[in-house]
């Protein structure tokens, strides 16, 4: 599914990711944990193709293609989805309108028939009920005036409708209380499937209690300093990041 090899990334001359490698197969859920500034969000943005990041070394193969050769919208249409840590507000654009435009862009790319308004509303209703998203919320302007929980649930709704092969969830747990976290986790778990891979980026172990990963990687100062199973997250919870970052420095 995804093969990242020796990836180094700089922002404005400062190296953020250093010789980063990661291999993700279909059906797997990988958690990437790390302290603030370790390069977690940079990874998600680089995968999605945001501007302002200089790739200085390495390669990323996504479903057999050179990911960096694709424009951001092509990556999305090829099934790469990023759940944003900070979903962007777009005044005046209705949430449902936005979603329908996106879904149809992707369906068209896949050679599927585009939904008309009625079909789309039907499909959307099924998905949003599961996430406890009201019809009223979908009529509102995209992310404008949404609470933190509403924004994150809306991201997961988008993921459910766009049916990606690879979902990158960037701190989907941040800013959520425990009830909202459970709703979000249920939504994510419902999308787990043998054809789909996920990269769950998080600062805390909390989300991983609900979305149980197959692998956990600890990111510090732009490198993976430890990889392991789900128990690594618990160890991290106990010891904190300081021990790990210390190791990183010692290793460097």
């Amino acid at each position: 599914m995804l093969e990242i090899k020796g990836l180094s990334v700089s922002v404005a001359g400062k190296e953020i990711l250093k010789d980063f490698s990661l291999s993700v197969a279909a059906g797997e859920v990988h958690a990437i944990m790390g302290p603030n500034g370790s390069g977690k969000s940079t990874l998600s943005y680089v995968l999605a193709g945001r501007e302002g990041y200089d790739i200085t070394a390495g390669s990323v193969l996504y479903r057999g293609q050179d990911l960096f050769a694709l424009e951001p919208e092509m990556r999305a249409r090829e099934g790469l989805f990023l759940a944003f840590q900070y979903p962007v507000e777009i005044p005046g654009v209705g949430s449902a309108t936005f979603l329908k435009t996106a879904v149809n862009a992707i369906r068209k790319h896949r050679g599927e028939k585009e939904y008309d308004a009625m079909e789309f509303l039907k499909v959307m209703r099924e998905k949003r009920d599961a996430l406890g998203i009201s019809e009223e919320m979908m009529r509102r302007t995209l992310n404008v005036g949404f609470s933190g929980g509403e924004k994150k649930r809306n991201e997961i709704l988008q993921m459910a409708l766009l049916e990606p092969y690879l979902a990158v969830l960037d701190e989907t747990d941040s800013g959520l209380d425990i009830d909202a976290l459970k709703v979000a986790a249920d939504g994510i778990n419902a999308l787990r499937s043998p054809e789909r891979a996920m990269i769950v980026i998080t600062h805390y172990q909390r989300l991983l209690e609900y979305v149980v990963p197959d692998y956990v990687h600890v990111l510090a100062d732009g490198r993976v300093v430890r990889s392991g199973g789900k128990e690594l997250a618990l160890e991290l919870e106990e010891k904190g990041y300081s021990g790990f970052t210390g190791n990183a420095e010692a290793a460097a």
């Binding site: 005046g92 209705g94 302007t141």
Partner: peptide, 24 residues
Amino acid sequence: FYCRQRGIAEEEAVALIVNGFCRE
């Protein structure tokens, strides 16, 4: 970028955002 990450081409994204701006 947010629009493009959802598979919407830049030109269409612009039209979408401008129509949103004009919504009232």
